[in-house]
Simulated scan of single mutants.
Amino acid sequence: MATIRKKGERQWHVQIRKRGYPTQTKTFSIRADAERWATIIESEMERGVFVSRTEAEATLVKEVLERYETEVLPTKRGEKSDKSRIKTLQETFGDYKLASLTSTQIAKFRDKRLKIVGPQSVIHEINLLNRVLKTATMDWGIALPGGLPTAQVRKPIKPRGRDRRVTPAEVDKILDVSESVELRTVVTLAVETAMRRGELASLEWENIDLKKRIAYLPKTKSDVPRTVPLSTAAVQALENLPHQISGKVFSLQAESMSQAFERACESHRANIANLRFHDLRHEATSRLFEKGLNVMEVAAITGHKTLEMLKRYTHLRAEDLAKRLG
């Protein structure tokens, strides 16, 4: 039963005691608001769906974002990108209390951001907010009475993935024009193994066994280590690469790989248009299927977690499929 008492000249203090639930108290400036709140809380307790709002009402969104950035992000591969996204989320939701965050507010954020950045960027931002709220509820004990508001927001439609195939002639051109043995090896490995740019940049000789023809990746974008088989071409490229004292396979950083690749494509000798470094991963994935590997085998090599993502990276040529039909 709720007890409502006048507190001072302009406040109303509500206290609700019910067996099996912690005592709930709250102060209002208008009696009608106090009565309305008491009715809602008592109804939830009667129906067995009550969740305490106390901590969610006392915690700001920026506080959980800051805690997530300090405690969780350092363990994630996408720390740098997520730090930028957290800053964007703080600017919009930072001063909201967790209990007041609604799906409508997040949907408005989605629509506003879509006028500035692409759908995939907005999806990443909403997904990050969802991970932060889920961590707050599951690991930090901050209950959200209405559940995760992000779960009730429609995500933007993903843009159509690139379907640019890289021809063997184009790969040969890039290898021919490049004066860097490192870049030639990077390109060869990318198109032979489907490794991501960051995975190539982090390769270390101690994790490569040329006799067994495997490369172990302890850290990946998906946070799941994997071992990648090496083709004959990949092994030959690594055998011809000088070893560094640092133990790393490449001195080039991930961003430098893309820049060097773009310069090679744009050089007057190669003159290759509309080609990005990441297209090599798409090409490699498609070639694995064309070699006859099944879905599970390709996923084990590329590290794709879902069939949907694997399909976005696979661009099989109709003429090649026609040959297999006989």
Rank of each mutant, 00 (worst) to 15 (best):
E255D: 15
H268F: 10
F261S: 01
N294E: 14
L307E: 13
R269L: 06
E290P: 01
L288H: 08
A300G: 12
R263S: 08
E283L: 01
L310H: 09
N271M: 11
E283I: 00
M309W: 07
A284R: 05
R287E: 03
C265Y: 02
R263F: 07
H304T: 09
H268T: 14
T302S: 13
S256P: 15
L310V: 13
R281Q: 09
C265G: 00
S267P: 14
E297I: 00
A264D: 06
F261I: 00
M257K: 04
Q253I: 11
H268P: 14
F261C: 01
H268D: 15
A264M: 03
R276Q: 08
A254M: 02
A284M: 02
E297S: 07
L310Y: 04
A264W: 04
E255R: 08
S267K: 01
K311R: 09
T285E: 14
V298T: 06
S258W: 09
R287K: 00
T285Q: 11
H268G: 10
R269S: 08
R269G: 15
E297C: 04
M257I: 05
G303T: 06
V298L: 05
A299G: 05
F261Y: 01
A264S: 01
A260R: 04
L293N: 12
L310D: 13
R263G: 08
A300I: 09
G303H: 05
A254F: 04
M309H: 07
N274V: 07
L293C: 15
R281G: 11
R287A: 00
A270R: 01
F277A: 04
E290Y: 03
H268N: 15
L252D: 15
T285M: 11
R269Y: 12
M309F: 03
T285N: 12
H268R: 11
L288P: 05
E308T: 10
Q259E: 15
H278T: 04
N271H: 14
V295A: 11
E266P: 10
V295F: 06
